[in-house]
Amino acid sequence: MHLYARLAWSCAFALALCGQALAAEAQPPVQVALVGCAHIHTPSFIALLKSRADVKIKCVWDHETARARKYAGETGAAVVDDVGKVWGDPDIQTVLILSETDRHEELVLAAAKARKHLFVEKPLGLGAKDAYAMMQAVEAAGVIFQMGYTQRGEGRFLFLKEQLAAGTLGRITRVRAVTAHAGALEGMFDKDFKWVTDFNQSGVGGMGDIGTHSLDLLLLLMGEVEQVTAAVTPGTARYGCDEAGEGLIRFKNGVVGTFAGSWVAASNPITLQVCGTEGSVVFMHDYVYFQSNKVEGATGKRPHAKLPKSLPNVLELFIDAVQGKPDVPLVKIREAAYCSAVMEALYQSVKENKWVAPPLPPDK
């Protein structure tokens, strides 16, 4: 190519790149509606959204008007008295459903029908029936979906997935995951978030509320479940529901797993264990202990130093996907729905004192 032709091509290419960059900068912000503000993570999600220049919180709706006004005042957004106005507003591309769990189905079905992208706080549903109905609606609408399962994006969990893919642990035989805090001991649910302790509104107690994070990890790693059983305890008896519980899971791949969720834990040193015929991975405090017969130096006696970088916050990932960023790792609606179905089976097993097989989605 002649020198001048090469220079002309290079200039044209540079101008094109500049044009793309300017177009990206000129892209209008994603307009978001908060639909329900009952969830305990609502304040942190609002803070995150306010920190992003590419997001505008346009309006807030909640069935409790005072709560909507409170969060609208913090964001400078309008209060909407009729949630139908959110579904009918063509400028609103995205909704965050942070309501009580028993309101999820009605809100998610309406949002999907209106073709709004959906971020929904965990858990998705009260059980299999409503969760699978939401799954079918979201998949039919083809909208972007994300759920607030935060632990799967941690660098140590990404490291564990790498080791499973590489086979360094051999054949997996046993898994355990625990998520726990001192919420009941500290009165976390005494006032604004007391609905979480009402089984009719939340569908769970302490085992399921916080333990859903652990169950999500185990299902992501091990796949479909054959049967489950569980036991729960009232803990402090402060809230009239279970405040902690343990579940036993038989996976279809032959692995035996346990998980726990608790509001009555002063500390929770060991949060995840995966054991196989050639090694193990243990999460203890903020460290990873990795032992493998297949990896030189992997003795498991001291913390493993080299871990992948953690992913951004789940809400950050969701906004990135809405903005058109490709290949963003999101929680699939099918994964979230199955987690609700398995958790319902665990609570059913507590009532009936037997092993229970969780229902698969209707199309399987």
Rank of each mutant, 00 (worst) to 15 (best):
R238Q: 07
D363E: 15
H104M: 06
L126H: 00
D130I: 02
D216N: 13
A114M: 06
G183S: 09
L330Q: 01
V120P: 08
P359N: 15
G187T: 00
P234T: 05
Y287P: 00
A66S: 15
T212W: 09
L360D: 14
E243N: 05
D216Y: 14
A24R: 07
M188Y: 10
F45K: 01
I172P: 00
L330W: 10
L7V: 05
L248A: 13
P358Q: 12
V281Q: 06
R6G: 00
G223T: 03
V138R: 05
Y338L: 08
V225L: 14
A68Q: 13
R67Y: 09
F193Q: 08
A321M: 01
E100K: 03
L34Y: 11
V60R: 13
I40F: 10
P362A: 15
K129A: 11
V288G: 03
L15Y: 10
A16I: 05
I333A: 04
A266I: 04
D81T: 06
V175S: 13
T75L: 12
A182F: 06
A111W: 04
T42Y: 11
V60C: 14
T75C: 12
G127N: 03
A12P: 04
V288D: 04
A305H: 13
V232A: 02
A265D: 01
A38Q: 11
D320R: 03
N353S: 15
I144H: 00
E246K: 07
L124H: 12
R302Y: 13
S262N: 08
T101F: 06
Y287M: 12
F318H: 06
L124V: 04
W87K: 08
T168V: 01
G125Q: 10
T229P: 11
V80S: 10
L307I: 08
E278M: 07
G235C: 09
G36F: 10
Q201T: 00
G125R: 08
L48W: 11
A14D: 10
Y149A: 03
A265S: 12
L98Q: 13
V225H: 15
E226M: 08
E64D: 13
D320K: 10
E246N: 09
V143A: 07
G211A: 12
M188K: 09
G187F: 03
M207E: 13
N293T: 06
A68D: 14
A78Q: 15
G240K: 04
V228M: 12
D327M: 06
K56Y: 04
Q31G: 03
G324V: 00
K354E: 15
Y289G: 06
L272Y: 09
K70T: 10
L346N: 13
E344V: 01
K70F: 15
